[in-house]
Design a protein around this nucleic acid. Sequence first.
DNA 1: AAATGTGAAACATTTCACAGCT
DNA 2: AGCTGTGAAATGTTTCACATTT
Lengths: 210, 210
Amino acid sequence: MSLYLRCLGELESAGRETVSSKELAGKFSISSALVRRDLGLFGAFGKAGVGYEVKSLKDALMSKLGLKRAWKVAIVGAGRLGLALARHKGLTQSKFKIVAIFDKAPERTIAKRDSGFEVLHVADLPRTVKERGVELGIIAVPGANAQEAADTIVRAGIRGILNFAPTHIDVPHGVFVHHVDFTIYLENLAYYVNEASHQKGHSVDRGGRD
Amino acid sequence: MSLYLRCLGELESAGRETVSSKELAGKFSISSALVRRDLGLFGAFGKAGVGYEVKSLKDALMSKLGLKRAWKVAIVGAGRLGLALARHKGLTQSKFKIVAIFDKAPERTIAKRDSGFEVLHVADLPRTVKERGVELGIIAVPGANAQEAADTIVRAGIRGILNFAPTHIDVPHGVFVHHVDFTIYLENLAYYVNEASHQKGHSVDRGGRD
DNA sequence: AAATGTGAAACATTTCACAGCT
DNA sequence: AGCTGTGAAATGTTTCACATTT
């Protein structure tokens, strides 16, 4: 639930000192009780009658989520998507630092005529991962090469993978994968839009509570 | 649960005629009973002693999910990400057809020197959406412009949005949004990797059942 | 007065276990 | 024999409601 974190960041830069469970609950359409329980899992910080101190709560969450430090990330696949991710504001402004980009054919990627990214050959991956201390990997290769890419980075010692290829990848026990599948997201949207147009007046968001 | 659909597609192209709930369950590490219940929601198709006929089950799912026809999609934002999505194999090979790409400054996008995508000005969006019958929208603009982009496409009549900007967007009731936030995905991975390295031998995947 | 933290209730999801079909 | 479909149990999640703290 790092959504809370995002929210706290916004509140902090808006200059807020404290926030109540009720207010946080409102932003996600959940009950205030659930917010209190969730935050309780991180070792309770609220003051009765006042709420939670934004700054220290954010701090506690970041500790718990392992975000007090930067994480080094490598991208495999320097095609359009890989390069787009490398320069995506959401990432460049986060705790996640892209420290290397690999491709099977670095000399043929658009990185050359693009903004001068240094794209390394996958053959250099194991060594580079070790040298630069890479901890997470992003797979942005075509589906047909995804498993191969996964095998390579797992062998290099990476234990967290964000997979953008439209294919399921198998990894050994102890390695974590999050699969980002655009098509599935669109299918879900299509489903809801479809339903909504059939049954008029139907609602997915049950409206506010509390 | 369009994950089943993906699975059935694979089975079909592998030439399989039937599949049991047990086999499907294995692919997702859930119980076979749950698979049967899920599929039951779509109006039961299995034959006792045999299993489900792959082809007709896939067909039924596609009907239910509104995927018997193609869906027309527009992308707002012709930056690196927008164009990468437009050409992404996962999408181009799906039921979702990108029929227009918009940008505030189409003449400055890399589309010109790129593969000759026709990028339209956002001013043309309302008209084009109507003319081409666009039903879903993808937002691939910087965070600062995301809300503005959302307002524009909602006003044009689109009711399903896939948001790639690292910002929450507000939409009226009846419009569906799926937010794709790379940073949150990485934060989750970081959390798991962090946990796993602390408590040795910890497992997230409880292992196979059935 | 306004909020937290939490036991107990309500609700939702998942699995067990088995009758019944092919 | 092998599988489905489903009541009933088990488990997990969310909310209610209230005693307690500032």
